[in-house]
Design a protein around this nucleic acid. Sequence first.
DNA 1: GATTATTGCTAATTCGTTTTAGTTAGTTTT
DNA 2: AAAACTAACTAAAACGAATTAGCAATAATC
Lengths: 341, 341
Amino acid sequence: MTAKRAKRVSIKDIAREAGVSPTLVSFVLNGKQKQYRVSDQIADRIREIVKQLDYKPNGFAKSLREGTNNTIGVIVSDIANPFFANMVKNIENVAEDRGYMALFASSDEKSEKLSDQLGRMLRKEVEGVIVVPCEGSDDIIRTLVDKRIPTVLLDRYIPDIRTNYVCLDNRKAGYDATESLIKKGHRHISLLCYDLKLSNMKGRIEGYKEAMEIYGLKSEIKIQYVSMDSLERSCTKAIDKLISEGCDAVVCATNSITVMCLKHLQRLKLNVPEDIDVMGFDGGNEFDFYDSPLCFMTQPTETMAKKAVDILTHILQSDEGFITQIEAEGTISEHRPLRDN
Amino acid sequence: MTAKRAKRVSIKDIAREAGVSPTLVSFVLNGKQKQYRVSDQIADRIREIVKQLDYKPNGFAKSLREGTNNTIGVIVSDIANPFFANMVKNIENVAEDRGYMALFASSDEKSEKLSDQLGRMLRKEVEGVIVVPCEGSDDIIRTLVDKRIPTVLLDRYIPDIRTNYVCLDNRKAGYDATESLIKKGHRHISLLCYDLKLSNMKGRIEGYKEAMEIYGLKSEIKIQYVSMDSLERSCTKAIDKLISEGCDAVVCATNSITVMCLKHLQRLKLNVPEDIDVMGFDGGNEFDFYDSPLCFMTQPTETMAKKAVDILTHILQSDEGFITQIEAEGTISEHRPLRDN
DNA sequence: GATTATTGCTAATTCGTTTTAGTTAGTTTT
DNA sequence: AAAACTAACTAAAACGAATTAGCAATAATC
């Protein structure tokens, strides 16, 4: 039922046309002319015919024979999230540089979907994968690692599983974010975060606590958990509570929380940073028109993408399984509203 | 030099273990037990062993034999652009539903990169491609079509090339956008756009002109071209000019232009829509914090993605080359600032 | 002038599937 | 009891490339 497309030209067709054996064609095509001393005459003739017939090697045959296809799989948790869209773009570029092709998929933060995607990728014979694990995907990642499939986790790691990862140093990021508010003179600093078991969230929470403790604000520690599903409602509620409790600054553990938080503050006609100071995470172009000064913790996306690909390709090309775990450092960057320009 | 991974179990290993020929194993694995009347006993035994040895069919061999691999290639012009990130996500979902795997790449609006990506995809044996052509890619697309590679253009078509495409009806979108401003009572309506030969831009420009003419505003037609490379500078200049000429509304032909335009108006302390009304294209989350009411032309991304995949898979599965060209309709949607909620 | 190298090529195998064309043994039909 | 069927299986070819082993012919060596 499949469309009948023109029959492909194979190495044999070229050989027949050139009056030589397929072996020679293969030699020439793979730059082994010297090694197998194919005469220049014949080599030129072969190259000529290859061009004439517009020969393209068959990747299936090649991969079947060689057992590799220079393809890696990349599964992020949400491709439509600018942070990951950017990551994906960088990964693709680096992979290309390293001679690999990257296959992308998005799990939409659902472990069942992640499992499906992984299955499909492995069936497509990717040699290794870069995965952003989602909540509840521990077992999936565990089998992946147990099966010795070259794996690099991205953005989040799983504490019990010994494998490669490239994440932000979330503890430090949480610490630095909190510390920066403390140094600005705030005392009643609250944290707004998701109640997730994911390492990135855990790390940020820990960092927040640690900073508060070290600066003698242990009693001020106040963590508000919001829900991903009813983000707006739970954020609104959480912020109302914080404010009623006299909170003067808040660390928002993700970009989505930051956005919701700022929206509600705007609704309440509260000014940032005068009435309440806000520290965000991973700010994107949502803030193009936000008109108060604001600080963010930003991740070195490009470096992280590069590292992830490098680790993976290195595993694929070397003989044994060392493990590399990288925690990148976040940077505090400032958003300046337009009117200040 | 490649990592020595455990030898894969093949159909032969299973056959040996079960004491039957590989043929039977293949029959059972492909659900042809009935058709080739394999005894239930043997079939069960085979299935048992398949599970035991954790056999996974080799995709290369399968594809080599069958000549297909149910994979399509998708090249967008910029994966980090939310509009395309969204498109990609939708395409992936639909493709999966249709039993296809989608391979993604981003050309970053560079025709050389597009050419590279296409080459790599075709070498990976994708059966067809969905491509967002970029400026200067006409020849690349032409050879693609000439080579009979199943192709669907997305977002932009190329007038001289007879092939499938799914685009916005940009002429109508430009018309409707302009008309909506006219109906609000504006007369001095200007268009801000890129000087590109891409069909989507051309269409929007035409639509603008058409609306102006039909409503008797031909003499008011004023088109300002801005440059992609120095977007901020050229936008600033263009807007200053428009305002000095007494313009009271502007249609921005892309989202990037809309953002720049609004930023500059904010800088000039001009109010939207009182001082100058603005009509944007493809608004995203950049406007979360934009505090004036604003209208956009938005595209039915999901439907477009679906159509593109459907057209492609249909070509792949049917016998001959009909051509489908779809122009989707845009919708005007309103952005309401927070304080109005 | 016999032996050994070197040059330039080919045949044949392998990778793991799918599928077509058989084969064998057992069962009906006449 | 010969002829025709059927059920249950197997052998072999094919997909397209890479590679190893080997075979002529010519050239170099002693």
